[in-house]
Simulated assay, not measured.
Amino acid sequence: MPAPLSVIIPTLNAARDLPLCLESLMPGLDSGLIREVIVTDGFSEDGTESLAEAAGAVLLKAAKGRGRQLIAGAEAARGEWLLFLHADTALSREWAERVSDHISHRPDNAAVFRLKYRSDEKGARWLESRANRRARWLGLPYGDQGLLISRQKYDQIGGFPDVRLMEDVMIVQAVGKKNLTFLDAEARTSAAKYERDGWRKRAWKNSWMLARFLLGVSPDKLAKEYT
C-alpha cells in the first residue's frame, strides 16, 4: 500500500524558514507515513524553489495567493490524506506518531496541532495560551497550526476557497468544530511579525481582522490591509 499522506506547503520567498519546516517532516518520511511533499510556490525570488527541489519535494508553480496555492497543491496530491503546512512552521518530533494514530482511529475528523511560537519572550507564552484556548472553544485554529484532513472530507466540503486572506478560517468553518481534533504535538511557528510589531499589538490587530471577517467584511478587502 502506498504511504497515505501528502504534505502541501505554499511558499513565497520562504528560503529562510523552509529548511526547518522540511527537516521537521523527517519522522514522517522515516516511518513511511509521507507519500510526497508538495511545495507550491508563488514565483519566489530568493532561492525557495532550489531549496525545495534539493530536498526532494515536488515543486509546483502557482499564481501568488495562499488560497490558490493550497488549492493547486491539493489538486496535484495523490495521498488519501492531506497535511497543509505553512512554510514558517516546523512540527515537533512526535507529530508523525500522532498523525498515524489519528488516521487509524478518527478518520472522519480533520485535525490541527497545538500552536507554539519559536520565541523565548513572555509574550509568546501569553499568545500561545490565548490562541490555543480560542481554537478549542470556537473551533477556529490559526492556519499556523496546520490542517490534516482526508481527501474524502476535503472534497466533500469543497476544499480551500480561492481568496486572498482568511482561507484558513473558512475551511475550518466548513469542517465544523465537532469534526475537528486537536493533536498532542506542536506546530512551532515563526514569531517574526510579533517580535517586529509587538506581541499584544499584533495579536489585537489579528483579532480585529478576524472579527471583521466574521461580521461580513470580504477577505479581499481585509487582504489589502494585511501586512
Rank of each mutant, 00 (worst) to 15 (best):
A211E: 15
A211Q: 15
A74C: 11
A90R: 11
M170Q: 15
V39L: 12
L140K: 13
S207K: 10
T181N: 09
G176V: 02
M170D: 11
K193F: 04
R188M: 08
A111Y: 10
E97F: 07
Q69E: 10
E49F: 00
K178Y: 06
A111I: 10
R114N: 08
G123W: 08
D108A: 14
W81M: 02
E167V: 04
A124L: 06
N206V: 04
I38A: 09
W204E: 03
A3M: 01
H86K: 06
V169P: 00
S104D: 14
K201G: 02
P161I: 11
L85T: 09
A187M: 01
L183V: 05
G159H: 12
P141L: 07
L115N: 14
E49L: 07
Y154R: 12
P19K: 05
K224R: 15
T189H: 10
I8P: 05
A111N: 14
A192M: 00
L59I: 11
G158S: 10
D88W: 01
R35Q: 15
R133F: 05
G176E: 06
A3W: 02
E121G: 09
R136M: 11
E36F: 07
F182N: 13
R212H: 09
Y194S: 03
K122L: 14
L85R: 06
G146H: 07
V163C: 15
L165D: 14
V169C: 06
A54C: 10
A203N: 01
P19M: 02
D101Q: 14
C21F: 01
S218M: 04
A96D: 01
R93P: 00
G143L: 03
R68G: 13
L18Q: 07
E121D: 15
G139F: 02
G73L: 01
L210C: 02
A14F: 00
I103R: 08
R78G: 07
V172P: 04
A174Y: 02
G28T: 03
G79D: 07
G139R: 05
G158F: 03
G159K: 13
S24K: 04
K122Y: 10
L147E: 13
A90F: 03
S50K: 14
E121F: 12
V175P: 07
M209W: 09
V217R: 15
